[in-house]
């Protein structure tokens, strides 16, 4: 049908019309409201009783810097422990052996089912249950000496993290096609070899986004270790404000550090994701 026909059959010719821009009054109103609220909050803080000079001064104070380093050490080590436990427990859960399976299920149930802060306090006060710990005849020590804030925090955070990580890992292992196990077996691989070379690298692709999420959660959860005297960044900030009473200023300092660490972690996660997405999806490399 050509243009002359279109006009001839009674319909108007629209070919020269442009589409008018819509007004979107609602959107304009909402945006204006939000900007006004943000300005009000900003003004409130600027006029509020916050001595920003303290924030600036303590942001790079040696105690705070040591605190953030301790936070990172604890987060990385607890995550490593959590991943190791998580992989083992996930494999146990998928085992046909009923004992392994139920022990793994029980572990997840127990450590996911109780608050993290309670677990930290339990580990830290383990000496009340077992005054001495060790291997009979080989080695023993007083529990108060062994269960330092560092060890209690590591065990508490790592074992708790393992319970969550195991579920993430289980989902990852289940996402790999059964044909991949069979192909690995067919070229003579043992179960462990197949897991390490074929299954886990493919599971990692599925597992990294939720693990990144878990790690960010863990970085902030280390702040709970302040209750058992582990000198992480929140604990350091608290110690300072006990002395100088600049509570809000030091909490802002700690908050800024957490934000900075989490902001650095996000692009790192993207790099890892790209590494494990080799060969998958939109055309590989």
């Amino acid at each position: 049908m050509n243009r002359a026909d279109a006009l001839a059959d009674g319909f108007p010719d629209l070919s020269g019309h442009r589409i008018a821009r819509e007004a979107h009054w609602g959107r304009w109103l909402a945006a204006a409201l939000i900007v006004i609220i943000l300005i009000a909050i900003g003004r409130a803080f600027a006029r509020g009783q916050i001595e920003w000079s303290y924030v600036e001064r303590f942001l790079t104070a040696p105690v705070i810097l040591r605190g953030i380093v301790n936070t990172m050490i604890m987060a990385v080590m607890a995550m490593a422990l959590g991943i190791a436990l998580g992989v083992i427990v996930a494999i146990m859960r998928l085992s046909p052996n009923p004992v392994l399976k139920s022990v793994a299920g029980g572990y997840t149930w127990l450590f996911r089912g109780t608050p993290l802060i309670l677990q930290l306090l339990l580990w830290f006060n383990l000496a009340l249950v077992f005054p001495t710990i060790g291997i009979p005849g080989l080695w023993s020590a007083r529990a108060v000496d062994v269960m330092t804030p560092f060890l209690a925090a590591l065990l508490g955070l790592g074992i708790n993290q393992g319970a969550y990580t195991s579920e993430v890992m289980r989902a990852g292992l289940l996402s790999v096609d059964i044909g991949q196990y069979e192909a690995a077996q067919a070229i003579g691989m043992s179960r462990l070899q197949a897991l390490r070379r074929i299954i886990l690298p493919q599971a990692m692709r599925v597992v990294i986004p939720p693990l990144g999420n878990e790690f960010i959660g863990l970085v902030k959860a280390t702040s709970l270790a302040s209750v058992i005297q582990y000198p992480e960044v929140l604990h350091s900030a608290e110690n300072i404000y006990y002395a100088n009473s600049r509570v809000i200023e030091l909490l802002i300092v700690a908050g800024l550090w957490y934000l900075l660490v989490v902001s650095i972690l996000t692009p790192l996660q993207m790099l890892l994701e790209r590494r494990f997405a080799r060969g998958i999806a939109r055309g590989g490399r």
Binding site: A183, A186, I187, G188, M189
Partner: peptide, 26 residues
């Protein structure tokens, strides 16, 4: 044992209906 079975499997190659290539490898 699993090791013995793996050794015996080396004698036969297997080609699957759905190929089952390892997707993370060239």
């Amino acid at each position: 044992s699993e090791r013995e079975i793996a050794r015996q499997r080396l004698a036969c190659g297997m080609v699957f209906q759905r190929f089952n290539l390892f997707p993370h490898m060239t």
